[in-house]
């Protein structure tokens, strides 16, 4: 019985939160890694793209709620998401047009593009603050729980409870769908293959008649769609706060580098690796140890939650030290 309780506790406090957080990171890291693979720079504005998109989604959600449209048990934000993606994509394609394209045509050093992305980050950050403010916003409506602690206890008779929130389940489902669609696109479609070809060997892709500007536009579109989805899911799961999206940049970069920059499959794996490490290291294991018959003195928490970003950082450093191309061999350039 205690063994079962321990298992349920691990599921409830570690596996489920880490899986949904990992899925959010994976979506973010996919965008970073795609942009890196095609445009060859680390996009510092990615976190604020997530925030900007999520803010638009929230505004649209409020609008839909005001006119009484909803999705029943599912959050209304899901309905607002496509509109949020479309608006953000327009903005991002605009930034490509007025900012990045110039440096691309000049073949500037990657670090100049990174710098330009910092400028874009500032503007997007300011715009987000302007349209929605800096306060914490909760926008998850509909049903809260798919499985609540009480239900679970009643069903199983275990003392330890387990809950699965709708936002968590939704995150996992949406991420799985997005990844499936993305990999199908990259591996099966002509445009997707052209993207991979461009990422592999830019000059040869040009010789083969692939239009670089089309590939770049497509990349921004996909990365934006993934970013806005990730931002919305993250906001639904936790809450929306502008500054959190700046901070999530580090775990996202760590995930992309762990998986190998430029490697989409690696980005997904990296997202889950970072999330599971972060949750495992900051979770107090005392409860589980007690179930297993130990009587620990302290909380058995390796690191306090405030330091969760240190976990990403340590993972990042370890990968840079031992395998700079990432676990799944990205670009080493």
């Amino acid at each position: 019985m205690d063994m079962l309780n321990a298992l349920v506790a691990i599921l409830n406090f570690v596996v489920i939160p880490a899986a949904s957080y990992g899925a959010q990171l994976a979506l973010g890291a996919l965008g970073v890694t795609l942009i890196y693979g095609i445009l060859r720079f680390s996009n510092f504005a990615h976190g604020d793209t997530m925030a900007f998109g999520a803010a638009l989604v929230i505004l649209i959600t409020w609008g839909l709620q005001a006119i009484g449209i909803g999705l029943g048990p599912l959050p209304t934000a899901l309905l607002a998401l496509p509109f949020g993606i479309a608006l953000t994509a327009v903005f991002i394609l605009g930034t490509d047009r007025v900012v990045y394209r110039f440096y691309r045509s000049k073949r500037s050093a990657p670090i100049i593009l990174v710098m330009a992305s910092v400028g874009v980050m500032f503007i997007m950050n300011g715009l987000t603050r302007l349209i929605i403010g800096v306060d914490e916003i909760r926008f998850d409506d509909g049903a809260r729980f798919l499985v609540s602690v009480q239900q679970f206890r009643a069903w199983t008779g275990l003392s330890e409870g387990l809950s699965l929130r709708v936002s968590q389940a939704l995150t996992l489902v949406v991420t799985a769908l997005a990844c499936w669609a993305l990999f199908r696109f990259l591996n099966r479609s002509r445009a997707g293959k052209a993207m991979r070809a461009y990422s592999d060997n830019e000059d040869l892709a040009l010789l083969s008649g692939i239009d670089p500007e089309r590939v770049v536009r497509l990349t921004w579109l996909i990365a934006t769609a993934l970013a806005v989805t990730a931002g919305t899911l993250y906001g639904l799961d936790k809450s929306f706060k502008v500054f959190n999206y700046f901070q999530i940049l580090l775990p996202i970069f760590a995930a992309a580098i762990v998986g190998g920059l430029g490697n989409p499959l690696g980005a997904v794996a990296g997202g889950f690796i970072v999330a599971f490490s972060e949750v495992a290291v900051t979770y107090p294991w005392r409860k589980i140890a007690t179930y297993l018959g130990f009587e620990p003195q302290g909380l058995l928490q390796l690191l306090s939650t405030e330091y969760k970003f240190a976990v990403s950082f340590v993972i990042l450093i370890v990968v840079l030290l031992f395998r700079p191309t990432g676990l799944f061999r990205g670009k080493s350039v």
Partner: peptide, 14 residues
């Protein structure tokens, strides 16, 4: 002169 992470067939397709 090739696309290294793409299959031989995909190289020809490109």
């Amino acid at each position: 002169n090739i696309f290294p992470t793409m299959t031989v067939e995909e190289n020809l397709e490109m």
